[in-house]
Structure formats: structure tokens, C-alpha cells
């Protein structure tokens, strides 16, 4: 695979963020070193839950309207990259939770939502794998992509009836960020670096889909 300029920038940004996070960001007083997992966990959740899933939903609606195969490829690529970032969230979360909460997993609102988002992504990709016809695959996955986006707030509401253990957002909230400045800079840079990483992976996966469709002889 050719390493594009975007890829180089994204990888360097991620490396720079972790050098800063590990060596130049203070250790949190109560949680200790485990808190540093936040700089992987939170930006992955940002990409998996909002960016990638949002793009799947938008591209799906536009596909059903415009019937442009490019939109289907965008949705499919975003779903696959989204599954990757959601997996990172589900792995880093328990690693942090064990020392801090004393348990790897709890059926808390946010954890359950993320788990089901992962299931929707996985179902979406399995559905695509089970259909050979290009046009039908695009229609079916667009329908699932849209229904999934409508489902997420419902899962959120239904699990919100339980009490939540999860720390509240420190960044994506209306009031001022509740974090010391050094940590905040690291966190914000990790969001930027992960967004770049997402855009790069999305682009690579999209180009792969173009090649794949060309090889399969589908209309472009």
C-alpha cells in the first residue's frame, strides 16, 4: 500500500499525541497512570460513535435518494473504520475500569450503548457480506444504516433508566471543560489526531472499495 501524505500526517499526529500524553502530561491524582487511557478511549469513542456512525447514516440517506454507488462505498468504508474504533473503545474501557471501578464491565448506560453500536456495525458488515448483487447490497445496507441511526437514541434512552457509573464528558458538554490545562491540551490534540486517522483510513478503505468494484466488474 502506498503511504499517502494524509496517512503520514495522521500517523505522526497520533505518535506526537502519545509522546505528549505519556511524558509531558501530569498523572491524575486519584486514578494514577490508568487515567492516561482516556487519550485513546475518548477520541476513539468520538470517531466510532459520532463521526463514523454519523457518516454511515448521512451517506445511507443520500444513497437512497441519489442512488450513487460512491455514497454506498463511503457508507461501507465508514462502517468498517467505525467498527475498528468502536472495538478500541470496548477494549480500552475495561482496561481502565478494572483498576478504577474494580470491575471490567458493568451494564451501565454508556457501556451498553457502545456495545450495541458495535453489534449494529457488525450486523451491517455481515449483511454486506451476505449479498452478492451490488445494487441490492447498497439498498439493504442503506436501510440498515438509517434504521441504526434511529435506534441509537432509543438504546440510549432505554438504558438511561439505569444509574450510570461512567464519568461524564469533560469536553463535549455545554459548560467549561473540567480538567487541568495540560491534560485538556493533550485530550483535544488526541481528538484531532484521531479525526485525521479516521479520515485517512476512510479514504484508504474507499479507494480499496473502488478497486474491488472495478475488479468485480460492477458499474462505477
Amino acid at each position: 500500500m502506498k503511504f499517502s501524505k494524509l496517512g503520514a500526517v495522521a500517523v505522526i499526529a497520533v505518535i506526537a499525541v502519545y509522546i505528549r500524553a505519556i511524558y509531558f502530561t501530569p498523572i491524575e491524582a486519584l486514578q494514577g497512570a490508568a487515567q492516561k487511557i482516556l487519550y485513546v478511549h475518548a477520541p476513539s469513542a468520538w470517531v466510532g460513535l459520532y463521526l463514523a456512525f454519523g457518516l454511515v447514516a448521512i451517506a445511507s440517506v443520500l444513497y437512497l435518494w441519489l442512488k450513487d454507488p460512491k455514497l454506498d462505498r463511503v457508507a461501507a468504508s465508514s462502517a468498517e473504520v467505525g467498527l475498528l474504533f468502536s472495538t478500541v473503545v470496548l477494549i480500552t474501557g475495561p482496561l481502565w475500569a478494572k483498576p478504577v471501578w474494580g470491575t471490567f464491565w458493568t451494564w451501565d448506560a454508556r457501556l451498553t450503548l457502545m456495545l450495541f453500536l458495535w453489534f449494529i456495525y457488525a450486523g451491517y458488515i455481515i449483511l454486506r457480506g451476505a449479498i452478492d448483487d451490488f445494487e441490492m447490497r447498497a439498498r439493504y445496507s442503506a436501510v440498515l444504516g438509517i434504521l441504526g441511526a434511529i435506534l441509537v437514541p432509543f438504546i440510549h434512552l432505554s438504558v438511561y433508566f439505569f444509574r450510570t457509573l461512567h464519568p461524564m464528558p469533560v469536553l463535549l458538554k455545554p459548560s467549561a471543560p473540567s480538567m487541568p490545562r495540560e491534560m485538556l491540551v493533550t485530550l483535544v490534540s488526541s481528538f484531532v489526531a484521531f479525526t485525521l486517522l479516521y479520515v485517512w483510513l476512510l479514504r484508504e478503505r474507499y479507494l480499496l472499495a473502488v478497486d474491488h468494484d472495478a475488479a468485480m466488474g460492477a458499474h462505477s
Partner: peptide
Amino acid sequence: MAVTTRLAELLLPLLALPFFVPVILP
């Protein structure tokens, strides 16, 4: 959707169960 795919009945629970959560739970 599921019946016309290659996985047929195997796909239905995979697709439907996540959507059943906000029904079954309450």
C-alpha cells in the same frame, strides 16, 4: 431483507436483536 440474502434465516437474529433491545428492556 434476510430471506433474500445468502445467510437467510441466520441473518435475521443478527439484524433484529439489537433493534429488540429498546423494546425488551423497558
